[in-house]
């Protein structure tokens, strides 16, 4: 008898169809824009030293005589109060933003998926305990906690990653649990159980893949949120004091009176970068959602 492959939910997306769907991501203007901006950020982060016209980490590379000047040919996005090039700082700032965004985009869905899957699969006391933790974590305010931790440990963008993971899994956990609870009764799960597949196999091989689309969307949204949180923490002066980041640029602009001198370029561009990166992640989330859930596509998305 030929070896029959047990049905897996993953096979609902055939390889060829999947390829076509990924192309659909590029059909929406928002999708193209967000992918392009993310690509630009990745290029900037990797090649920051080669691309940026000045080195924001080198005190000697500042144009003190040209301090607080608006956009010009020499400094396309103007200079800060020490004559540092805003464009160069922006380019180097992509590193912190992307590290934070991608790290939390990976850790939060993984932690949430594991806990949510365990809660739904085992039910009973385990389920109640995990959902209790979810309810507790959901009401803890993130920023005051981050400030508290930063006060003791010292500023670092890893605080954002760790605390975002610690606080962010709850929402994912709730969604994954709901999905797996509804999937648990599906015939293919029963089939897997009927030939005595061990529970980790049923859980991680059969049930968890049905939540992958959900997790991809969450990853994008989490990344958007953590980019904003990192910017906020750096703005308050609790970021990494040695790393150039967008939030820190805005903090410097605020503390060194960019608003008093009307240095709009020093305020506008870093904030715009944060907004666009976060928006790109959110749009990516929407696009992925549509990709995986064709029912949304017919809805009136003007």
């Amino acid at each position: 008898m030929a070896r029959t492959r047990h049905p897996r939910p993953r096979e609902r997306w055939g390889k060829h169809k999947a390829e076509r769907r990924y192309l659909q991501l590029l059909r929406r203007p928002a999708g193209i824009f967000s992918l392009a901006f993310l690509a630009l950020c990745v290029i900037c982060a990797i090649g920051a030293d080669a691309i940026s016209p000045y080195d924001p980490y080198d005190p000697g590379d500042k144009d003190i005589l040209a301090a607080l000047q608006g956009p010009s040919l020499k400094h396309p996005l103007g200079t800060d109060s020490f004559g540092g090039d805003v464009l160069s700082a922006l380019i180097h700032g992509t590193r912190v933003a992307l590290i934070v965004g991608f790290s939390t985009g990976i850790t939060v869905p993984i932690l949430g998926a594991i806990l949510g899957a365990v809660a739904a699969f085992f039910g009973g006391g385990v389920d109640r305990f995990i959902m209790f933790l979810v309810d507790v974590v959901m009401v803890l305010p993130g920023l005051p906690l981050m400030i508290l931790v930063a006060t003791y440990i010292g500023g670092s963008y890893w605080i954002v990653v760790v605390l975002f993971t610690f606080l962010g899994w709850a929402g994912v956990c709730r969604m994954v649990r709901g999905r797996i609870l509804s999937e648990k009764a599906a015939p293919y799960v029963e089939a897997a159980r009927s030939y005595a597949a061990p529970w980790p196999r049923v859980l991680f091989r059969h049930l968890l893949p049905s939540t992958y689309p959900l997790l991809a969307v969450t990853a994008a949204r989490t990344a958007a949120g953590s980019v904003l949180a990192e910017a906020g923490l750096s703005f308050l002066g609790f970021g990494d004091p040695l790393a150039v980041s967008w939030g820190k640029m805005l903090a410097d602009a605020q503390s060194q009176g960019a608003l008093l001198f009307g240095a709009w370029w020093w305020v506008l561009f870093p904030g715009l970068a944060v907004t666009l990166l976060s928006l790109s992640f959110i749009n990516l989330g929407y696009a992925l959602e549509e990709l995986f859930n064709p029912r949304l596509r017919r809805g009136a998305r003007a």
Binding site: A231, G232, G247, Q254, V267, G271, V274
Partner: peptide, 9 residues
């Protein structure tokens, strides 16, 4: 996606 402090500034 807009940071509150940036909008404030």
């Amino acid at each position: 996606s807009i940071p509150s402090f940036w909008l404030a500034m």
